[in-house]
Simulated assay, not measured.
Amino acid sequence: MKTYSTAASLRAAINTEKRSGKTIAFVPTMGNLHEGHLRLVQHAKQHADIVVVSIFVNPLQFGANEDLSNYPRTLAADKEKLFAEGAQYLFLPHASEIYPEGMDSHTKISVPELSDNHCGASRPGHFTGVATIVAKLFNIVQPDTAVFGEKDFQQLSVIRKMVSDLCMPINIIGVATARAQDGLALSSRNGYLNTEQRSIAPTLHRVLQETREAIACGYDSYSNLEQHAKISLNKAGLKSDYFTICDARTLRPITGDTEEVVILAAAKLGTTRLIDNVTLNVNPSADWGMLAAN
């Protein structure tokens, strides 16, 4: 595995691969890699000849009171894991390479509507930071395919919309959320949880599953389900940020045209913010309300 710290050096290496007919898959990360990240690399290997992984803790997507300075950085271990998975290139830029004139004067990309609610409402500016760094990395790597986890469902939606709107010739692949045996979605931030909090954390996924099952059984009072879920989370010791049942394509309220439903949730456990989601596919041959759990 070769490591590059500048856009020019990485692009030169990738262009050499492309001239020989190789296809490129890209997995952008912020490091502190876990099994979920490695599954993305595994999927990338299935879709291209060359896999490029980036590690960059992007300051533009962190708010003023968020955990940028404390975000876990485990570069040596990350390199070992990527080498073992067979990634060919690692892009490891410094902030000065990405934002040479500083973040304030850097061009930014905003994806309206999809970025506005849910995590976007709780973390103003977050998705502008995400869209900007992903677009810049896409321009540096120029991949044929890029792979993202479905745990960050809203982020994946924002990236897909950006790629579509800006006519980027990149196939975006979403990979199912990797989970611990008790259902907790794998996340770099799980390392912040103490023993007691770690035992409580799987409640988020359990409540999501219970809500999905209720909808699949025909219960369509979504506001009541959302309220009940928030109460359940708060009773368990999680502080609910949002719990929303919405259209998976628009991330807006469900309508008669909805084909897939997503239930999005975020909650704090101590100082750690957890996010998760589950989806349901609408059966087009049945009456509305007949949903099959996905």
Rank of each mutant, 00 (worst) to 15 (best):
D49Y: 09
I50V: 15
V51C: 12
V52Y: 00
S54A: 10
F56E: 04
P59Q: 08
P59F: 04
P59R: 12
L60N: 08
F62W: 03
G63D: 05
G63F: 02
N65R: 13
N65M: 09
L68A: 06
L68V: 01
S69I: 03
P72L: 08
P72S: 09
P72C: 08
T74Y: 08
A76Y: 11
D78H: 13
K79P: 09
K79F: 12
K81V: 06
K81H: 09
L82G: 05
L82F: 04
F83P: 00
F83H: 13
A84Y: 03
A84S: 14
E85C: 14
L90V: 06
L92E: 07
L92V: 05
H94R: 12
S96Q: 13
E97D: 09
Y99R: 12
E101T: 12
G102V: 03
M103K: 12
K108G: 02
S110E: 13
P112D: 04
L114R: 00
L114Y: 00
S115R: 02
D116T: 14
H118M: 15
H118V: 03
C119I: 04
G120C: 04
R123I: 00
R123N: 02
P124G: 01
G125Y: 03
G125T: 03
G125D: 02
H126Q: 05
T128M: 13
G129Q: 09
A131E: 06
V134R: 10
N139D: 14
I140W: 06
V141I: 14
D144A: 13
T145V: 15
Q154K: 09
Q155T: 01
L156P: 09
S157P: 07
S157L: 08
V158T: 01
R160I: 01
M162V: 03
S164A: 15
